[in-house]
Design a protein around this nucleic acid. Structure first.
Length: 209
DNA sequence: GTATCGATGATCT
DNA sequence: GATCATCGATACC
């Protein structure tokens, strides 16, 4: 079997995460996604890496969620689709942010915030421009740019040929902190970071806004 | 290393 | 017209 570093299986022996994996509350899914391998694209253009930072959004019960109080508009329809569906939206008018929907709470999802780049480094470097590898995918907008995730992924259910998540080995140490860049429900401990990683957006709890 | 600030424009009200 | 689940540059420690 081939690996992509850190003992992560990338070859034929690895099965993608099942839909059942995502049929749980977003905090559980967000924590368990840390250490998993995200792969996007096929063949020579396949890119990806180990998930090192996520945030949980509690759907209709979470004031910070786009689905809070059952809000519905054209752009957030995917949040209400079944678990393991991509919800991709535009942030600040120019960046993309990628989520995977969860079960337990309607409209709940996990925001993918950072990966350790492992597969397709040349492609990711080209997409991101001349930046150091530490800045390739250490933020939700940068992650989407490096992986080529855009609106075309919105509403697509996992696993799909265009993207898969492979399980991790073991139980990595995960640190919990406040979510980044939000004002409502900012105190909730719903951000998850692989302990000791240098690939997350910020190593410690972020500033409060 | 951490904090602050302005650009940015699609999306929503 | 207001609002950002951001980014990158800059200033400072």
């Amino acid at each position: 079997m081939t690996t992509a570093g850190a003992g992560i299986p990338t070859g034929r022996g690895a099965r993608p995460l099942s839909v059942r994996f995502f049929l749980r509350p977003p905090e559980i899914v967000a924590r368990d996604l840390i250490g998993c391998l995200l792969l996007v694209g096929r063949g020579g253009r396949r890119v990806g890496g180990m998930i090192v930072e996520t945030e949980a959004y509690g759907g209709v019960e979470d004031p910070a969620s786009h689905a809070y109080a059952f809000r519905r508009y054209a752009g957030n329809a995917s949040l209400y689709l079944p678990a393991a569906t991509w919800y991709v939206y535009r942030s600040y008018g120019l960046h993309w942010c990628a989520n995977l929907t969860c079960g337990g709470i309607p409209g709940s999802a996990v925001l993918l915030r950072a990966i350790e780049p492992l597969v397709g480094l040349r492609v990711m470097r080209r997409r991101r421009g001349a930046v150091v590898d530490a800045l390739l995918a250490n933020g939700p907008g940068k992650l989407c740019q490096a992986l080529g995730i855009d609106r075309g992924f919105d509403g697509v259910r996992m696993p799909a040929s265009r993207a898969v998540v492979l399980p991790r080995r073991g139980r990595p140490a995960v640190e919990v902190s406040r979510r980044i860049g939000i004002t409502r429900a900012a105190d909730r401990p719903m951000r998850f970071v692989l302990a000791g990683t240098r690939w997350a957006s910020t190593p410690t709890a972020p500033r409060s806004r």
